[in-house]
Design a protein around this nucleic acid. Sequence first.
DNA 1: TTGACTAACTTGTATATACAGGATACAATA
DNA 2: TATTGTATCCTGTATATACAAGTTAGTCAA
Lengths: 240, 240
Amino acid sequence: MSENKYLSIYNDLLSKIEKGIFKPGTKIPSENQLVEQYETSRETIRKALNLLSEHGYIQKIKGKGSIVLDVRKFDFPISGLISFKELAQKLGKPSRTIVEQLEIIKPDEALKKHLHVTAREDIWKVVRVREIEGERIILDKDFFNKKVVPFLSKDICERSIYEYLEKELQLKISFAKKEFFVEECTEEDRMYLHLKQYTHVVVVRNYVYLDDASLFQYTESRHRLDKFRFVDFARRIHLH
Amino acid sequence: MSENKYLSIYNDLLSKIEKGIFKPGTKIPSENQLVEQYETSRETIRKALNLLSEHGYIQKIKGKGSIVLDVRKFDFPISGLISFKELAQKLGKPSRTIVEQLEIIKPDEALKKHLHVTAREDIWKVVRVREIEGERIILDKDFFNKKVVPFLSKDICERSIYEYLEKELQLKISFAKKEFFVEECTEEDRMYLHLKQYTHVVVVRNYVYLDDASLFQYTESRHRLDKFRFVDFARRIHLH
DNA sequence: TTGACTAACTTGTATATACAGGATACAATA
DNA sequence: TATTGTATCCTGTATATACAAGTTAGTCAA
């Protein structure tokens, strides 16, 4: 599947952890054992194990080995750039995407700032509602620079824009910066979402960058309070 | 400062980025140049650069070099296990910690689950209010296993528990898992915080683990809606 | 002038080796 | 019995080498 040796080993070990072949609390084979199993060098094994460690799947203990953590099997693993489609699939819940708006606009002041574009550039604006188990829970407003994404259709937006961008347009999405806060809900929120009695929404601002560090997408995702949940894993660096 | 070569190089480059010696959008010296500057091997340089990349400080571009990102200079960099004291210092705002409770308890059902302990074990319970610019904004409820943390005092809790744990007790905090959601505020919230008209609080559950992957602290941090903000940086892995 | 090629740079991957230092089991010793 | 030493696992760090592959600037020929 992968060209990369260490990434395919990472992937293989990860699937063994997720399938429960390696169980939480137990040790995975030692680096030297894995060297023999995968017929590669120790450094290559270590690259794969370090990735697993950074992403919170294993804990390496000097002198002992690597044990499988169980901190990852959570309800709502948004952490780490996952798309709505992937997420809905993981949760196994019936979900639907409704495209409410799809148009080309000129950026206003706020958008110029968020997308780092001039007033004359064309911007795709996509407004979608995410329905989970029959309830309209999330309002997604995506903005793409038309220079980078020349064409979009209702059909693409209903499926997965990310899949289209990565597979069709061969764009390499590299990293994203997310920002969360809580805000009073707007008229737009009330129009598109089933808000019940709630007066506030959780806003997630998402800035997505390509391989060459250029910003190409700005997304504002507005969640109903009671349905929002976020999980984060972080390691601490010790100097000394 | 550090024993580790690659960590001290990481630290040195990081401080140069933060001080603006390396400016956002510009390239840092190439790997081979850094090899000469730090008189070390390329692999060691690459370890330092990969850390910077994972933490969102630089973007490495094949064939070109590493450019400095500016996505990190945000108001509220909680991402990555930072303590309240460190945070308040970074923001440069006048802040105060008020210890409201400090006692040893036996865990109830919820706590038994969160801290993975039996009903007979002693647990430190610390309740603190974080005051920023005169307003009581955050309610922190910390629970420590007394086996791991035998002694605590009001004085320690007012300063930084983390500093005490790491410097005095030599505990090696390794990683943490955070969980966020929004909840209706409780009587306790109303008692301790200046909640204004808000009916909900943002709850951050924090599970902190030591080097040997043992859970030793559970924290529930309750934030007033309008003062909550969280920033996250994530890279996407491509399996080609 | 244009276009193709090349040389010299960059980062990415894979390998091998060496040694430091933590964990553990077991045998030797007091 | 209790302790100490030792051999042997383990992971962590540092180094060197080789080649792949992307970028860029300059050269040279059509």
